[in-house]
Computed example of a mutant assay.
Amino acid sequence: MDETLRVLIVDDQPIILEAVRAMLADAPELQVTGISDPSGAIALARELRPHVVLLDLNMEPVDGLEVLSGLRADPDLTDVSVVMLSAAEEPETKVEAFRRGANDYVVKLPSALELIARVRYHARAAAAAGAREASFQAMMESRAALELRNRQVESQKSQLELMNRELTEASLTDALTGLRNRRYLKFFLEQAPLLAQPDSERRHRAPGHFTFCLFDLDHFKQINDRYGHETGDAVLVEVARRLRQNTRENDSVMRWGGEEFLVVGHGYDYDGARELAYRVLHSISDQPMRLPGGLSLRVTCSLGFSPLPWIGSDGSQLGRDQTLNLADVALYLSKLEGRNRGYGVFPGADPDVVARLTDLGVDPQSLRLENGKGVQLVALAGHEPDD
């Protein structure tokens, strides 16, 4: 038995609304709801959680493009498939609808057979990020197969390479901030392989080829709750801008997820790693963020940083995932200490590290084997606002 697929029709002309409803009547699995007041469409969509919204373009008092923007701005409705219905056939109108996030554009009124087919397709395709990832992987495999079969067809090969560059770029980029996403880390480290360290660096336990600086914004949920997700998004975009200004070209800045970011420094020594972490910490907290609408917010972050490769006094090394976990634990230490600060975790001899971690309620083995021996904690203070 087919599952019920919820459809919301938004059209300010009751006659058209009922006509569309009648066209969908031959598909019993479609549960259709209509609304003729576009100003209430988003609220009704939140209530119904439709799989598909059939949205008229020209409406009063709110036009379809404005409703479409509202749907895409609502975090609970971003994955709803939106099919625009309009008598307008101009390419510019269609391009604008797709730019704002429409999944399909249908010149009304189509045949009932076509409309049912489109609605069924988009309802079943209202998928989560996992499905989009599977689609991307399938496309990459298809690209490889096509390149193998068409090596001699230069024009086709060029078109395929261009298409896949765009797809790869999209898959490695955070849509909101324009930064790289967490999927990019593996790619970045593989494209910039670790450099061998001379014996002199091993003896002095100098930081390795990379520095992981992991941080998240303090009390970010309160910003969303008090000012709204649009302001929260503006804060994330401003954080990205500041990070770009305060990192080098061969560093990599990633949105790790939510309000968490990862900066991977490339080729820093011990002092350079501390300086990088300091710049990142203070780039967020030193100046209030001037946001749209004249709002000014002071935002701080909690940060942890650690070198890669991690080379102990006995010459042993920790891997990338282990080193990233060290930075994560250091971030946790920063939060326990009151936020707006950073901790670095480096190979070294810190005789007080075990007692310190015990006082903070952290298992020393989270940082290093041998009960925390051979670990050096480096503390950084954030900017304190003037009274």
Rank of each mutant, 00 (worst) to 15 (best):
S252F: 06
L167E: 03
E29V: 14
K373Y: 02
D11H: 04
A144F: 02
V253A: 05
V264Y: 01
A123M: 13
H209C: 08
R298V: 00
L333H: 05
V107T: 06
P351D: 04
R202G: 07
A355R: 06
L30H: 03
R244E: 02
Q13I: 09
A330D: 03
D271M: 10
V119Q: 09
E66A: 08
P91I: 06
D271Q: 15
A112N: 05
L236P: 03
L377D: 00
R180V: 15
S306M: 12
A45L: 01
T78R: 15
A355D: 14
L324V: 10
V119F: 03
H266K: 11
Q376S: 10
Y184K: 09
F210D: 00
Q317V: 15
A123R: 09
R149A: 12
M84A: 06
V83W: 09
K157V: 14
I284G: 04
C213D: 02
Y121D: 04
G382Y: 12
I284P: 04
L336V: 11
L71K: 14
N224D: 02
N371G: 12
D233Y: 12
L77V: 01
H209R: 14
I223D: 02
V32C: 05
A131L: 10
V83M: 15
R180P: 01
I42K: 14
E3S: 10
E90D: 13
D271F: 10
L71S: 13
E169I: 00
H383E: 04
A134R: 05
L295K: 14
T33F: 05
A277K: 00
V237D: 05
S158F: 07
R290E: 13
M289F: 13
E47G: 07
E147R: 15
G130I: 10
L160D: 01
L333W: 01
S81D: 03
R290F: 11
A25E: 09
L109Q: 08
A131M: 03
I284E: 03
D2V: 04
L115H: 02
D216Y: 01
L30F: 07
Y343Q: 06
R165A: 02
V378F: 09
I16T: 05
A192R: 15
D199N: 07
G101C: 10
K186R: 13
R118T: 12
F212C: 01
R203W: 11
L331A: 12
A196Q: 06
L5R: 06
E201W: 08
L308A: 13
Q222A: 13
A277T: 03
S155L: 03
R100S: 09
L295N: 07
R248I: 06
V280E: 04
H282T: 03
K157N: 07
A97T: 01
A327M: 13
E201L: 13
N340H: 08
M140K: 11
P61H: 13
V264D: 01
A129S: 09
I15V: 11
G40V: 10
V67Q: 08
N164I: 14
E169H: 07
A25V: 04
E66H: 01
G267P: 00
F187M: 00
M139E: 15
I35K: 08
V280P: 03
L333M: 14
V95A: 10
L148G: 13
A129V: 06
A128M: 13
Q322Y: 05
S306P: 07
R49N: 15
D387C: 12
G130S: 10
V345Y: 03
C301T: 12
G294C: 07
